[in-house]
Amino acid sequence: MHSGCLKGLVSSSILLAVILFWHTALLRTRREQDTRSRANPFSGAKHPFRSSLEDLSSLSGGVDFPSLLADSFPEPHCHKRLVLLVLVTSSPGHFGPRQVIRGTWAAEETWTPFPWQTVFLLGQTSDDSIAREIQKEQQRFGDVLVGNYLDTYRNLSLKVMHGLKWATERCRPEYILKTHDDCFVNGDRLPAFLAEHNTIKTGLYVGAVLPRPKRRVIREPSSNWYVSRQDYQPEEYPPYATSTGYVLSLDAASDILRVAERTPPILAEDAYVGILARKAGIWVKASGRFARYNAKWRVCNYRYLMVIHQLSAKGQTLAKVNMLKARTACEDSREVIRW
């Protein structure tokens, strides 16, 4: 009897020790997770989209906008009564290009009759060090919008949809320009042109439009721009403005977003916007003011060009200098006031 009790006591002690060990390990794990969450604002967010080829193909019902919002990260602040909001797609690690933009074309004037501002669009990153730097960046500048999706090339359409949704609901500017962090935006001309010379106040969708032969859907699986027939059945995209930059009026952006709720996204962000615009009954307008390639533009070209693609940091600085020179250097040349 005494031996049986002793065995029971030993068994109970072992069981109690196992329970205490498991509980201690669980608490330690939770503390580590909390520490990582505080250090990395992205770590607690959901990642509803993978970085593989099937990222977007699972969204058969269209874009689920509520799932794109990252509640764990503060939103940028909107200026009031904006004529133009510039949405710049960027990658988490592109700190240099964003800083160059802040110091050149996006540098805020002390006063402007046509208010405008710039916001950078980012997705999630699993790199804790980059995430911490983005947190500091947002605290310092307040111009970063982070979405609840992995920042991959295949999720670029989701990034743009998230940016447009946020812009139309939070800021409600008269116009939205979507561009990329290797592009120059002529902030000296574009807001004023939109306010004073643009005659298309509603249903505006304008940019550099590709010729028809270049709008064929790429079916080669090895291509970065591959789109399967399952994702998009037609062999040709409707006319669309390239990702260099395109301007949308507020009503056009809102109509495009409504169509996106029932239209599955595809890889090519600019083509996807074109598909949505066509479904919404909006026709893209082609304009030579959006330069798809950088060239040795003269100072007077900056009286006409609104967006220039593929600029290095040095190129951004030079473009800003030329933009300012164009204020007075080319007054003898007649200004073009149409798209």
Rank of each mutant, 00 (worst) to 15 (best):
I266S: 11
G281Y: 00
A241D: 13
A271W: 04
L248Y: 14
S249K: 15
K285Y: 01
T263S: 12
R258G: 02
T244K: 10
V284C: 01
Y246S: 05
S287C: 13
L267V: 10
S254E: 09
A268W: 11
P265Y: 02
N301Y: 10
R298G: 13
E269S: 13
I282A: 03
L250V: 09
D251T: 00
F290D: 08
A260N: 07
A277W: 00
L257N: 09
G245I: 11
V284K: 01
A280W: 00
I275W: 05
W297L: 14
L257R: 05
T244D: 04
S254K: 06
H309P: 11
K279Y: 00
Y246A: 05
K285M: 02
R298N: 13
V247F: 03
V247Y: 03
S243N: 07
E269Y: 13
Y302A: 08
Y293A: 15
S287K: 14
R278W: 14
R292N: 13
R278P: 08
S249M: 12
R298Q: 13
V247D: 04
Y246F: 15
A295R: 15
R262V: 08
A280H: 01
A241F: 06
S243I: 02
Y246M: 08
A241H: 09
Y246N: 04
H309L: 07
Y302M: 06
W297H: 15
I275T: 07
I308N: 13
K279H: 01
Y304W: 03
K285I: 02
A291V: 11
A277V: 00
A260G: 08
P265R: 10
S287Y: 13
S243R: 03
N294E: 10
A252S: 05
L267M: 12
E269T: 08
I256R: 12
I282S: 03
A295C: 05
K296I: 00
V273P: 03
R289S: 06
I308W: 12
L276V: 06
D255I: 01
V307K: 05
D270A: 11
G288F: 03
A252D: 01
V307H: 03
V299A: 02
L267F: 12
D251L: 00
V259Y: 15
A260S: 10
L276P: 04
Y302F: 15
A260M: 05
A286C: 02
R298T: 09
A252G: 02
D251R: 00
V284N: 01
Y293I: 14
R262T: 12
Y272F: 10
V259F: 12
A277F: 00
M306H: 13
R289K: 14
I308Y: 11
M306L: 09
Y293T: 15
S249T: 11
L267H: 09
L248K: 08
A253Y: 04
I256M: 14
R262W: 10
L305P: 07
Y272M: 03
I282R: 04
Y304R: 03
V284F: 01
M306D: 08
P264A: 12
M306N: 11
V307R: 06
S249E: 09
S254P: 04
A253R: 05
G274F: 06
K296S: 08
A286Y: 02
Y304H: 06
R278S: 14
V247P: 06
R298S: 13
T244V: 14
D255H: 11
A253N: 05
A268K: 06
A260H: 07
L248S: 05
Y246T: 04
Y304L: 02
R303L: 10
G288C: 06
N301F: 07
N294T: 14
